[in-house]
Computed example of a mutant assay.
Amino acid sequence: MTQSPAKTFSFLTSARRTLQMEAEAISALLDRLDDDFSKACELILAGKGRVVVTGMGKSGHIGNKIAATLASTGTPAFFMHPGEASHGDLGMITRDDTIIALSNSGETNEIISLLPAIKRLGIPVIAITGQAESTLGQEADAMLDSGVDIEACPLNLAPTSSTTTALVLGDALAIALLESRGFSAEDFAFSHPGGSLGKRLLLKVENIMQTGDRIPKVAPTASVSDALLEMTQKGLGMTTVIDDQNQLLGVYTDGDLRRTFERDIDLKAARVTDVMHRGGKTIGPGALAAEALYVMEQAQITALVVIDSNHEPIGIVHMHDLLRAGVA
Rank of each mutant, 00 (worst) to 15 (best):
F11K: 05
E22C: 07
L33K: 12
T69S: 13
A28W: 03
S27L: 13
M80R: 01
H61W: 09
I44D: 02
K39A: 08
A28T: 03
F9Y: 12
E42C: 10
T75V: 07
S59N: 13
F37I: 01
A15L: 13
G55E: 00
P76R: 15
F78H: 11
T73K: 06
F37T: 01
T69Q: 07
V52I: 15
C41D: 07
R16K: 14
A67F: 01
E22L: 06
S72D: 04
T8L: 12
S10Y: 11
I66P: 07
H61T: 06
V52G: 04
T75M: 03
R17G: 10
K65H: 15
K48N: 14
L33C: 11
T18S: 10
D34Q: 11
A71P: 11
E22M: 08
E22R: 01
F37L: 15
A15R: 06
K48F: 02
C41K: 14
T69E: 08
T54D: 01
D36M: 10
V52P: 03
R32P: 11
G55D: 02
M21E: 12
F78Y: 15
V53N: 06
L12C: 09
S38H: 13
G55R: 00
F9W: 11
T8I: 09
K58C: 02
I66W: 05
S59W: 04
A77Y: 04
K48P: 03
L29P: 10
L29W: 08
G63Q: 02
L19H: 04
P76D: 03
L43W: 02
S72K: 08
F37D: 00
A40F: 00
L45Y: 05
G49I: 03
G55S: 07
G49Q: 09
T13Y: 07
M21F: 00
I44W: 02
M56G: 00
S14G: 11
K39T: 07
E22N: 03
D31E: 14
D31F: 03
I62M: 06
T8R: 14
A46K: 14
I62H: 05
G63A: 05
F9R: 04
R32G: 09
S59D: 08
F11N: 00
D36L: 09
A40L: 05
T18N: 00
L45A: 14
T8A: 13
A71D: 04
D36C: 12
K65P: 14
T69M: 06
G47N: 10
G63N: 06
M56E: 02
T75F: 04
A15N: 09
D35Y: 11
L19M: 13
I62C: 05
A71T: 06
V53Y: 00
M56K: 03
T13A: 14
G57M: 08
A15G: 09
G63R: 03
A71S: 15
R17D: 13
S27N: 12
S10E: 10
S10H: 10
K39N: 14
A71I: 00
I26L: 14
A40H: 08
K48V: 00
S59C: 13
A28H: 07
F9N: 02
A15D: 02
K58G: 02
D31Y: 03
K39C: 08
V53D: 01
R32S: 12
P76Q: 09
A71V: 01
M80E: 00
A15I: 12
T18F: 01
I62V: 15
G74V: 03
L45T: 13
N64L: 10
V53M: 03
A67N: 04
F9Q: 04
R17E: 13
E24A: 15
G63D: 04
I44M: 08
